[in-house]
């Protein structure tokens, strides 16, 4: 892998030169929250530790979108209208979230809607010498560093950036303005990188003992904890909407008034909702809220589907989102403390 470095002041210039690829996006402020949004100016970007309300999945697997329109003769997906975007400032945990979604949407039968958006999006990751926030659990989940899933990755080392080139698209982006990159990385720069990483490792405020938790989850299938959590859960769905690895969606057809026309759209669904597990004949496989929570936390903290690994990327969004304090931290703690 190619590693380069860049002077701190040059990022602005490089940012604008990426306009040749597509729209410029990144973390920006919207009222009280930070979101991934279109950045008209470099100064709109919040390039500092912190977390966006929704993960980057919202741009690749949107919360609601039209899949295709149809009439009696044909259907059209209009995939060619999906814009090309550069997203600067994607956190390592969000890139790990995308890698999980890639497994689901791109392996075996690739999903054309996901694939096109993924192909049209340049992911430029960034990490800092501090954790993003107090509720980050990425260190425990092993998602605080990232080896793949990005086109370029910037390590912010206070007075310069180390830049990893992660794909051929990343290389193309560098070629848009090669003058701002240097390849003469000396020992001092590497030492600064190692020192910064070590310092950051000491600053994480939260952790989960992932050595034992998956086994404890396995043994806690009949634990009364699930019913206790079910009594508390508001069933609002917030945890699943903000989760980078949640990928479930519903598909609905919209029939137009006349002429046999219509469209089909998708929107994010959520296994915490009772209707999600409702099947024909009014049967429900997960009638109680506790059972639905057990499924969700089983996926996040034990193993998800065929991939055998916990799906949680440790972003800590559920920690902030849940109004009644049910999240990966409190659930892990409750399970580890119960016998």
């Amino acid at each position: 892998m190619r590693v380069l470095w860049m002077e701190k002041g040059k990022l602005k210039e490089f940012f604008y030169s990426m306009k040749a690829f597509g729209e410029l996006w990144g973390p920006i402020q919207k009222g009280k929250t930070r979101i991934y949004g279109k950045a008209e100016n470099f100064s709109d970007l919040k390039l500092e530790p912190g977390r966006t309300a929704l993960p980057i999945k919202k741009l690749i697997h949107p919360s609601k979108f039209t899949m295709f329109k149809y009439d009696k003769q044909e259907y059209s997906t209009k995939l060619e209208n999906i814009p090309r975007r550069v997203i600067l400032g994607v956190s390592p945990c969000d890139i790990h979230g995308l890698l999980k979604l890639d497994e689901i949407f791109l392996e075996e039968e690739p999903d054309p809607y996901y694939e096109k958006r993924r192909d049209n999006t340049a992911i430029i990751g960034i990490s800092y010498c501090k954790p993003c926030c107090d509720s980050c659990i990425c260190q425990s989940m092993g998602t605080d560093v990232v080896d793949e899933g990005y086109d370029l990755f910037f390590s912010d080392l206070e007075d310069f950036y180390l830049v990893w080139v992660g794909s051929s698209l990343g290389d193309d982006l560098v070629r848009l303005n090669p003058a701002v990159f240097h390849d003469d990385i000396d020992r001092t720069k590497l030492e600064k990188f190692v020192e910064c990483k070590k310092e950051r490792d000491k600053l994480f405020a939260c952790s989960i003992d992932m050595d034992v938790l998956p086994d404890i989850m396995e043994l806690s299938y009949d634990s009364p904890i699930w019913d206790e959590l079910g009594d508390k859960c508001l069933e609002c769905g917030a945890c699943t909407m903000v989760c980078p690895s949640c990928n479930c969606y519903n598909v609905i057809d919209e029939v137009y008034l006349s002429e046999g026309k219509g469209k089909r759209f998708r929107y994010w669904d959520c296994c915490i909702f009772k209707e999600y597990s409702l099947v024909a004949g009014d049967h429900n496989f997960r009638e109680n809220r506790g059972e639905r929570l057990r499924l969700w936390y089983g996926h996040k903290l034990n193993s998800f589907g065929p991939y055998g690994r916990p799906a949680c990327v440790g972003c800590g969004r559920c920690v902030d989102a849940c109004p009644v304090d049910i999240n990966v931290l409190t659930v892990a703690r409750a399970l580890l403390e119960s016998k």
């Binding site: 309300a53 919202k58 508001l234 609002c236």
Partner: peptide, 12 residues
């Protein structure tokens, strides 16, 4: 519930 779309809109 309302919260679902509220999350989609990234409100505080």
């Amino acid at each position: 519930p309302v919260c679902t779309e509220c999350k989609w809109k990234e409100n505080d």
